[in-house]
């Protein structure tokens, strides 16, 4: 049997959970405003992670790195904040269509910053996945409104975290 790849399993797990969060967030946003919901979830997340990491060495050192602060700003605050705020002003279909730009934007940034050029097979795989996202968006019409700009902003900062 082929050996299992731990990082790929970890990414799969994250994506599986993220795939379920839209329904939960959508329902929760009827009971709490976007900032209350976003801050609430990250108070819980920070409490859990800091509790688990409390005996690890390097926590206070890591908190002082500017690049970690930037990771928090882009990967957490802007990404989740803009997404939640954007969904109030645009349609879910527009948000789904905009998600199609994420993989290619990430690879382009990786190519520019990390000089990780995708090979031919990888490029085909990326194009297939992007086409898949467009189809999953299912004929949604791209509305360029305030919400779309906010969601696009959220998706644009995500590649920076890589």
């Amino acid at each position: 049997m082929a050996s299992v790849n731990a990082p790929v399993l970890a990414l799969s797990g994250a994506v599986m959970v993220w795939g379920t969060t839209f329904v939960v967030s959508d329902n929760a946003l009827r009971m709490a405003s976007p900032a209350v919901l976003t801050v609430g979830r990250f108070i819980v997340a920070a409490a859990v992670l800091l509790f688990l990491a409390r005996h690890r060495s390097g926590l206070s050192r890591a908190i002082r790195f500017w690049s970690v602060a930037l990771l928090g700003l882009t990967g957490v605050s802007l990404n989740y904040g803009l997404q939640n705020a954007g969904l109030l002003y645009t349609t879910a279909g527009t948000a789904a269509l905009l998600q199609a730009v994420l993989p290619i934007a990430t690879v382009l940034l990786g190519w520019i910053w990390l000089t990780e050029r995708p090979g031919g097979v990888s490029a085909v795989g990326l194009l297939l996945s992007t086409a898949g996202v467009v189809l999953v968006a299912g004929g949604a019409i791209l509305r360029l409104d305030l919400g779309a700009l906010l969601v696009l902003g959220a998706f644009s900062v995500m590649p920076c975290t890589q």
């Binding site: 731990a6 379920t20 993989p103 940034l109 999953v136 995500m158």
Partner: peptide, 24 residues
């Protein structure tokens, strides 16, 4: 994501982002 994305090529992490709407 922190564990996975620090250990795979950018292209692999990127393509997983396309799976989110598909899983949804």
């Amino acid at each position: 994501w922190t564990y996975g994305a620090t250990r795979v090529p950018v292209t692999v992490a990127a393509v997983f982002l396309a799976l989110i709407p598909a899983v949804g």
